[in-house]
């Protein structure tokens, strides 16, 4: 079972690659932020699988932290960098 959990985590890790690609190519700033949001959810899931695989209960606290803090960053993006004065977007 430990191996199965780790391999599932590895598969999820590969989906992070898709998120990274989207974060790099955009094209809009919203796309990039969306990618980071997915990154957060996937990191939650990977951490939960690790917690089970290695029997480390404290990792669930890390997952909890991921879940909350990803939202704070996303809100900072929407409210600050992306406010109507605006940072360059769609420009590529």
């Amino acid at each position: 079972m430990q191996t199965l959990h780790f391999i599932l985590a590895l598969l999820l890790f590969l989906t992070l690659g898709a998120g990274l690609w989207r974060a790099v190519v955009g094209p809009t700033a919203a796309d990039r932020m969306l990618a980071v949001q997915v990154f957060g959810t996937t990191a939650v899931t990977i951490t939960l699988l690790f917690a089970q695989a290695f029997g480390n209960a404290a990792l669930r606290d890390v997952a909890l932290m991921f879940a909350v803090l990803a939202a704070v960053t996303a809100v900072a993006f929407v409210r600050r960098a992306w406010s109507e004065v605006g940072v360059d977007d769609d420009s590529e």
Binding site: V62, T73, D89
Partner: peptide, 27 residues
């Protein structure tokens, strides 16, 4: 070349760093 892109990628870098700490038993 774009600062907004650099920052968003840096945030993703921070998340990956955190996963690395998880992997290195540094909870």
């Amino acid at each position: 070349p774009q600062l907004i892109r650099a920052i968003v990628i840096f945030v993703a870098f921070g998340l990956l760093m955190a996963l690395t700490w998880v992997r290195l038993d540094a909870v």
